[in-house]
Amino acid sequence: MNCTIIKYYYGDIPDQQSGSSISSRPGGGGEGDSSSWPLWEVFIRSKQGLDHKHVGSLHAADAAMAIENARDVYTRRQEGVSIWVVESKYIHASNPDEAESFYEPANDKVYRHPTFYDLPDEVKHM
């Protein structure tokens, strides 16, 4: 005899009654679950910082939602005063396999660092 027992924990509600189907709306990319929302990379500028630094990624249906999500996920502890988001698919990255030819040639070129000059005492803030 087959019998199915569904156990609901407190607060759980069946999918058809819960909010889980909301993701199948325009901009969500279609079929149902939240994994179909595109991924966004988040950059935050801190109060002291001049530049936006990459802090992580999140899912959102569009740019407006991505910024709000970023506000809620990444600035809860006063981390920043400005947010940039960009869809992850628009990020072009260097290939780790090419690291040798990309970065190693710089290893023995110490003269590219400005460390061979004697600075006059009058020059400040260097």
């Binding site: 607060g11 909301i22 939240s34 899912h59 709000e68």
Partner: peptide
């Protein structure tokens, strides 16, 4: 707060809990 741990997606879970 009853949505805590039950939000439709992680990001909205955090938003409503905030």
């Amino acid at each position: 707060s009853e949505w805590c741990g039950h939000g439709p997606v992680l990001e909205q879970d955090i938003a409503i809990t905030n």
